[in-house]
């Protein structure tokens, strides 16, 4: 009886430990679970996180699935702390002085991918909306309910871009149609997509991921490791800030 009793006690203890472990994992993983469960809309009318088909060369993450945005009804609202808040249609934004730059985006998940982006610099937009001196940054409100903050110094540093085209074609819905931020010296979660509204604010605010996950508000790419998708994910060292190759 003793061995049998011993096994049962062991079995009981193992089950107890498993149950406590599962509860603990559930507790700590709750933001991730919330994210995984958030994208439960599907079908041709919706876009969301994907690595399939052409996107295996440039992964796509979204906070939630979103209905495809129609260019004819979309507009960018720029407001908050600025002298001349206003609404822009896509063609108005395309009429701003355009720039093309090749930039690699680096995800905090470790992968990175490179593309040629076309869009306009934030100072061109700021000439029209005239932010107040008290405005230190911009909160981006996106079509997938994602919210992200970027400081004005980063947005005006000459490498940040508000892009409407990628690799010579209009942005796909997956990559943020009709407008997305490209801030190549910050991790991907600081590059919001499918932007609906820009709000100038007086102080830094944590974005969606920084509020619930272990992601810094600043989001600068740190020295570390990279697994570039266009180079077979072969691991390499990166030196922090923008990855230039």
């Amino acid at each position: 009886m003793r061995p049998f009793g011993l096994i049962r006690r062991r079995d009981f203890l193992a089950r107890l430990i498993s149950a406590v472990g599962a509860l603990a994992v559930g507790w700590f993983k709750s933001p991730v679970r919330a994210w995984a469960g958030a994208g439960d809309f599907s079908g041709a009318d919706f876009v969301g996180k994907t690595r399939a088909g052409r996107y295996e060369k440039f992964y796509v993450n979204y906070w939630r699935s979103l209905r495809r945005i129609r260019a004819e009804t979309w507009a960018l609202d720029v407001g908050g702390l600025c002298e001349a808040p206003r609404r822009f249609g896509l063609e108005e934004l395309k009429a701003l002085p355009a720039v093309t730059q090749t930039s690699r985006l680096k995800c905090v998940e470790c992968w990175s991918a490179k593309a040629e982006w076309r869009g306009f610099r934030v100072p061109e937009l700021e000439k029209l909306v005239r932010p107040l001196p008290s405005a230190v940054g911009v909160v981006f409100h996106c079509g997938d309910d994602y919210v992200e903050y970027l400081d004005r110094e980063s947005l005006n540093n000459g490498r940040a871009l508000l892009a409407y085209a990628m690799d010579g074609e209009p942005l796909t819905h997956e990559h943020g149609f009709p407008l997305r931020a490209v801030v190549p010296f910050k991790y991907g979660y600081k590059n919001p997509k499918a932007i609906l509204r820009m709000e100038y604010v007086t102080e830094p605010l944590p974005g969606t991921w920084s509020k619930i996950g272990p992601y810094s508000v600043d989001g600068t790419i740190l020295p570390g490791w990279d697994h570039p998708l266009d180079r077979g994910k072969v691991r390499r060292r990166i030196h922090g800030g923008e990855i230039l190759d």
């Binding site: 905090v108 272990p214 992601y215 810094s216 508000v217 600043d218 989001g219 740190l222």
Partner: peptide, 8 residues
Amino acid sequence: PHPYFSGL
């Protein structure tokens, strides 16, 4: 050397 966090 560092907590589970993406920043410094």
